[in-house]
Every structure is written in C-alpha cells, then in structure tokens.
Amino acid sequence: MRTIRLNKPSPYQFWDDRRGKLSSSKGGWKAGVDVWSHGYSIMNELVGNISYMQMVILNATGRLVEKKLADWFEACFICLSWPDSRIWCNHVGALMGNTRSSVVAGTVAGALASESRMYGGNYTSLAGVKFITDALRLINEGLTIEDIINRCAFKNDRPLVVGYVRPVNGNDERIQPMKKLTARLGFHEGPHMKLANQISEYLYEKYGEGMNILGFIAAFAADNDIAAEELYYIRPVIVASGVTACYLDTLSKQPDSYLPIRCDDIDYIGQNDRSIDF
C-alpha cells in the first residue's frame, strides 16, 4: 500500500485541529467593520462599483471579471428565465404555488429540478464544455465533424450531442439575440464558437436539429477561458426567476386548479388486481 506518512500523534488530529475554528479562502465578515470576497472589500470596493452578476461570478470563480462578460452572462440568465410553466423546472414551481408552498421553496425546488442530465444548462454545462473542447482538439488532430458526431451515442438513429438538440423544438430562438449581443459587447468569435457553428450546420442539414443555447454558452465559455466547472458554479439558479413567475401565476389562482388530473387520466400498466394470500 502506498501511503504518505504523516507525522501525527493520533488518527483524529486532523479533525481536532479544526474543532471550533473556521478558515476560508473565499472571504468573510468582521462584524460591524466590513465583508470581504476573494480579497476585495465588499463595502468599500464592490458595492456601487460592480454589477450583481460580476459579484456572482466573483463568488463562483474568485475572479472579478470585466462588466461586459458579466453582462453577457446576465443575458444568459434572462434567456433561461421563462415564465412558461410547461418547462419542467417551472412546472415544479407552478405546482408549489398551486399547493401554497412558500415562494422560496417553490423557486429553489425549480432550480433543483433544472439540475438535469437533459436540459436546463447547469449540470449539462459540464458535458457541454467538455464536448466542444474535445471536438476542437480532435479537429486539430485531423478528424472531421462527421467523425466526431459518429463517436457520440445514438438513439433512434439520431446522435445525442450535448448542446445541439432540444427536447421540444429544434430551432432555438435564443441563439440569434445572444449572437447579436455577443458582437455588440465586442467579443470576437473564437475557435470553439466557429466549430460549434459548423457542427450546428452539419447537424441541421443531416438531422434537422441545430445548436441550442447550452451549446452556444459552452462554446463561448471555452473561448473565454471559463472552465466547465466554473460555468456550473456560476449558474446554479439560472432558471430561478422564471420559476418564481410560474409559482406566482398559480399562487394567484384557486388552489388545486393547476392542470387537474382525473383518476382515469393515469394510465395504469401494472399488476392485475390481486389479494394477499399469506
């Protein structure tokens, strides 16, 4: 067994050293004096000088980014904050307004629902950035887009490519406004975004499905030195505002009036009726 021998008097010294004490590399509060985040005085340097989204990114990554990058992310938050309760995370919020749970419970429950392997763009952002960075590396090694797509898993003869399909509709209306904003803020199209556009065109021609907002954000992040994990940390509650709206929609209506379900609206496909015989 390979072990790093540690000079410690007991197996629990590590925990004894930490009892009743805290140390943080992120920041902290000195009561009545100030609060710090990653070396910045929040009260003397940040309040009034940076945007809320710059603060979100600072807390998530430790980096105080330019305002234009924070503005770009703020637009992403807007793109994922829809007041339409058919979307799964919003649906959870609506159900909680329907049953008169609290607005906080409804909103965070919706945010939890969006931590999905399929949509929502927070958990999936990890896979999205990995896909486009791997794809660019493979292209540079001489592979074609077709080769890369063929390496992906397929379901019903269609490739499962994170960031390039949508559960409901193949045309993502968020891409064009985000492209316009990206140009207006002065960001140039980097190699990941160029490749993402080419992959999108290939998939659209062959399968009728192009890039979705996750693919767009992942390519932008990769071009702007934002790691997959950082992207995940920036956006855990990216859908929250839309969930709140859906919660409030049902809160304003009669309890238990949201999409009522009759007993026979459930399709039971289980065991036949049976009795307990032991």
Binding site: R262, C263, D265, I266, D267, Y268, I269, G270, Q271
Partner: peptide, 13 residues
C-alpha cells in the same frame, strides 16, 4: 404522451 403512465398505483374513480 397524453397521460401519465405508472406500474405502481391504480385509482378507481
């Protein structure tokens, strides 16, 4: 699907 599907629970109206 138009309906929920389950093997677990049946409700008789």
């Amino acid at each position: 699907n138009n309906k929920f599907t389950t093997k677990i629970w049946k409700e008789i109206p």
